[in-house]
Amino acid sequence: MPALSNDQADFARAIVLGLDLSPQAHAVCPKYRVATAMAVYHNNYRGNLHDTLASAYPVTEQLVGKDFFRVLTKQFIEQYPSRSGNLHHYGAEMADFIADFEPAQSLVYLSDVAALEWACHRAYFAEDEATLDVSGLSKVPAENYADLVIHTHPACHMVRSIYPIAAIWNAHQPGANSDFHIDLDSGSSNALVSRKENTVMVTELTEAGATWLQSIRSGAPLGEATSGVLERYPDFNLNTALLNLLEQGVLADFTLENMP
């Protein structure tokens, strides 16, 4: 497929970089210049990606304002071409990009907010999966509890930050109180993203709860995860943590370690 393949590669680069097509493309426009057609493709390309980023990062856009967000997305789009025919995959690198984006350095929390927004975006489109069946859990003999490996729902994510990102996110949702004032000294945030009845939510976990969930998510069995947390946080209450996570639909199925 050399001819078609080479033509398309040249065409793609011209669109992305906003260049003219080379004469070898043999492009023809009887009514206007080829450059006009290429400008339409270039603007479509940039416009689609900008709109996609604006829809995945609405809080980031609110925090920096529409004009600044446009400057930011322009540079992001130049740095990161799309890699998927599904536009909902576009924009994964935004948190890292913002961390290095010089004009946004004064908004120290912005990168972490963007990471949280990407987690929410993924949670929104995540596959469906049944949540933990408590009656099934009750059939597990007590002596095997320590070996339980609990899996989290595909829509579950955790984003930890030294800034109050969960509070910032919730304050910028439709219908939230607009008088919100960001107190950056209000402490760190263990933002838990979950999906309940198909609504994506962001809540806070305690340090102990977040440490436990992180351990569970990395595949640690219940006994190991819990004893690890209890060493550092003697007040950790497993029952309360489990009930809280069950309530939020974070826990999916479970398996018993060392058993088929």
Partner: peptide, 20 residues
């Protein structure tokens, strides 16, 4: 088409109508 040179252009792009 929408993909070439390691990039995806999320648009509907034309190509020459050849036998190839």
């Amino acid at each position: 088409w929408n993909s070439a040179a390691g990039m995806v252009i999320n648009d509907l792009l034309p190509f020459p109508y050849t036998q190839e």
